[in-house]
Design a binder for these strands. Structure first.
Lengths: 336, 336
DNA sequence: TCAAGCGTCCGAAACGTTTCGGAATCAAGT
DNA sequence: ACTTGATTCCGAAACGTTTCGGACGCTTGA
């Protein structure tokens, strides 16, 4: 591979000036710049990133830190959308993105901070980590700029990006109320997740605004998992057959609920209405097509990268960004 | 960040020996190794990858080269499975994976080879590129080891990994024949793709073995796209209502076909049977659940990484690997 | 004539690591 | 006492880039 020295030798211009020409610095004449660039193209010169990173003590890489690739992205392809959104932004800025998961931490016995420092990584987008993970806490407390998706922690160098989960849950539940439902169960996510609490608040708000009392028996947590939602639905529908609607805090849980209802031979939506959350690709193909709150995960990944770069460049940035959501009415809600 | 020099200073051991101790070379005493490793852990030392890459002229990064993130991975999450399989393998070996797409080539005006050289990347897994892409050809012709998924080109340093597409297609079509279908249409993929030709051969073989003549009117190409499959199905079912079964070379095309059949009020599978290919997550949720040929894309990504590393290390490797497939019988095929 | 300023240039050091070539120490064998 | 070999060590160069500090030549204005 040709280096900057080759260009220097070929043109008779010093290495210093070649470097400055390539980087379009001001104190190099137009003529020199042109000559350098021409020769560079001719011999197929590409800058050696390792050398650049070494001397500048930084790199054009962003980290995408996830809990676990396989599991979380199984069928819903939320993580995939996040990846491709962030990737496309990074690409447009000439940045690389490198992924880390909790399993890489354990496999290599290094913390996220170490993993990042090792590669001179400039910043990280974080999604789906347990907020009590010590490595997570170390990361947000470090001097590495972080953009957190769907969770907020007061760290030195962090910002949060998410949709308005409370309002979104409110919209979903209110939609059910507008269809005259009163006995509305909720299948919520992992109790430790920030979004779980937010969405629960939306649920509560919608009910209380409508003057409907809360019923402990209708409130359940299913860890965002399809199979737990399945079991839970089986249980609550036999214990509380007065339920006429279920709000699921994720589409995958709605899928589990739907299967359970089908198993119990309860008609959806005629006997029980269903609202999901996320709008995963599956949602529109279910029978019936699922009414759900849509989130733009691709946009989230893209915007996360965008904000991260702003932080890295010390440009002004807000510390919280709210992305729009939308209630998608399909066929899983029935007017009583 | 602490460096190797800090360890040297703290222990009074030369930089050379510290380096060799850290890398567990043979000509350093056990006592020294222990001391070095202890101090390294104490001060939280992590090796600087850039410096390592620079001096060794290689890196612990593998490339994953894709046609286009967004489009190809839209709903089927095949690409996601590939990514996570390859990622998990890389992770277990302490390697990074960096993704490139055709759009990165154009955005940065660099060929895949340049993109790889720039980062000292040791090898690449390639999926979904057009085989006539000049950058693709340059890549497989270069000295960079490549593992090609689902396509074969005689390059210097390449190997191919795929399922037995011909046999798989044969199995699918034969399954229809065993259910007494004779007028079997095929919705095939992009004409330039290697797998398209392979699957077509399987289709032909199944028919000829059963003594069923080929019918040009039953053979169509839909570029693996749902909407084209939709339009095509609309067309062929009105022009050739004698068709009782359709073999789709991808599940996404089967989804398109299914929508078209539903629009035409043709019952699946009672009036027309359907077999897909890939077993995407959607398949089992369709109405009726789709009978299809399953491929293990996660395993493909994992194995691709595995074989790539073998090539990089100059260990023995075959130049073609066939992964198993399986016909998954669900509810979209009807016995005539 | 001199100083100041500008535009353009260059040498050399630095980044953190690996590795080549050589060397010191010690025990064992002659 | 001398060689031999094994074991353990070290200095210095090298990888390709950026950048600091300085320098040269030219024009301009006093």
């Amino acid at each position: 591979m040709p280096t900057i020295k080759d260009i220097s030798r070929l043109t008779g211009i010093s290495v210093t000036q070649v470097s400055r020409a390539l980087n379009n610095h001001s104190d190099v004449s137009q003529a020199t710049k042109e000559r350098v660039n021409r020769v560079a193209k001719e011999i197929g010169y590409v800058a050696n990133r390792s050398a650049q990173n070494l001397v500048t003590q930084k790199s054009k890489s962003l980290a995408l830190i996830l809990s676990n690739l396989e599991k979380s992205g199984g069928r819903d392809n939320i993580v995939y959308s996040l990846i491709s959104g962030m990737y496309h932004f990074a690409e447009s800025e000439g940045y690389e993105v490198v992924m880390f998961t909790t399993s890489s931490v354990h496999q290599r016995d290094k913390s996220f901070v170490q993993l990042c420092k090792e590669q001179n990584i400039s910043g990280a987008v974080v999604n789906g980590l347990r907020t009590d993970d010590p490595y997570y806490l170390e990361l947000v407390d470090s001097d590495i700029p972080c953009v957190l998706i769907d969770s907020s922690v007061k760290g030195k160098e962090t910002m949060t990006i998410s949709c308005d989960n409370k309002k979104a849950a409110f919209d979903a539940v209110n939609h059910l109320i507008q269809h005259n439902h009163k006995n509305i169960a909720v299948l919520n996510g992992r109790t430790e997740a920030t979004i779980t609490a937010d969405r629960f608040q939306g649920y509560v708000l919608a009910l209380t605004e409508a003057g409907i009392p809360l019923n402990e028996k209708f409130i359940h947590y299913c860890d965002f998992q399809e199979d737990i939602a399945y079991e839970t639905t089986l249980k609550i529908m036999t214990e509380s057959p007065e339920i006429t609607a279920i709000f699921c805090a994720s589409d995958m849980m709605a899928v589990g609920a739907l299967k359970a209802l089908r198993f119990l031979e309860i008609k959806v939506p005629e006997q029980v209405s269903l609202v999901g959350f996320d709008d995963i690709p599956l949602a529109e193909y279910l029978m019936p097509p699922l009414t759900t709150v849509s989130q733009d995960f691709y946009g989230m990944g893209y915007e996360a990268g965008h904000q991260l770069l702003k932080m890295i460049r010390h440009e002004a940035h807000k510390n919280k960004i709210i992305l729009p959501h939308k209630l998608l009415e399909r066929k899983s809600v029935f007017m009583l």
